[in-house]
Write a protein that binds this DNA or RNA. Structure first.
Lengths: 126, 126
DNA sequence: CACATATATTGCAAAATGCAAGTTACTAAT
DNA sequence: ATTAGTAACTTGCATTTTGCAATATATGTG
């Protein structure tokens, strides 16, 4: 199913994972998509203030690695939304584990709540 | 218990976690320590070939954030070992979740096995 | 004394990040 | 018809981090 062989640094699954999402931004984008955000502006407006060039770069890489899918939700003008693939959604246990660790050792942190994004006309949210 | 308030980017536990281990190397060091490695040379000799300046930098940061503890295991000459604190060991579910994701989507990856490090004279390993 | 070992530090080029401004293509308002 | 606004980017440039190789320091060993 996946055909991305030849691992960059080693065949360790952790290493391989970090080669995909081991940076300060990628998992935050995954988090936002998991919470129901879909559009570029939604992602830009998160409280961490990601720079637009970084966001564009990460969205491209996430498509290449198959964690997200980009689709036009309208034409004239073309507007795009980003949705998690199954492979992307499968990162939920990773995010949950990080949240669990964070909440335990930094009790002042607060978990973000899913968007009530009825405007997206989507039946279910993660 | 922790007194590192004033979160860098936001109060999200994921963001806060990524500010600590959101890079390509930190979780690999944690992995190695979890597997029973303790010494600088052990860490240097992992298959990912971390550069010594990066390793030294990460070991310092991991001490500052309280994930590892550095102790001399001998004097003359002073030699040091690095061990996970409880806070560090608590990252095991995060590593396990990453392993789970990696194994599912990259079946050719292989989980590293714990060292049989009797030479460390340590009673138990993670 | 010469050499080896463990734990680093330093120098420097390359890559990634962060910030601000600019671009494109359309819609909406006056 | 001009002006302004919006979404989704792109570009330029300075700063920071990474990666690689070489060097450093203290000690023990032959």
């Amino acid at each position: 199913m996946d055909n991305e062989s030849a691992f960059e640094r080693s065949c360790c699954p952790i290493t391989n994972g970090l080669d995909i999402f081991g940076d300060r931004w990628t998992l935050l984008i995954i988090r936002d998509l998991m919470l129901g955000k879909r559009r570029y502006q939604d992602l830009i407006s998160s409280p961490e203030s990601i720079a637009s060039n970084i966001l564009a770069d990460r969205l491209k890489k996430l498509q290449i690695t198959g964690l997200i899918h980009r689709r036009a939700y309208q034409q004239n003008p073309a507007r795009y939304e980003y949705v998690l693939t199954e492979k992307g959604k499968d990162l939920k246990p990773v995010l949950d584990a990080i949240i669990g660790w964070g909440r335990k050792h930094y009790p002042d942190t607060m978990v973000f709540t899913p968007l009530n994004s009825s405007r997206h006309l989507s039946p279910d949210l993660p």
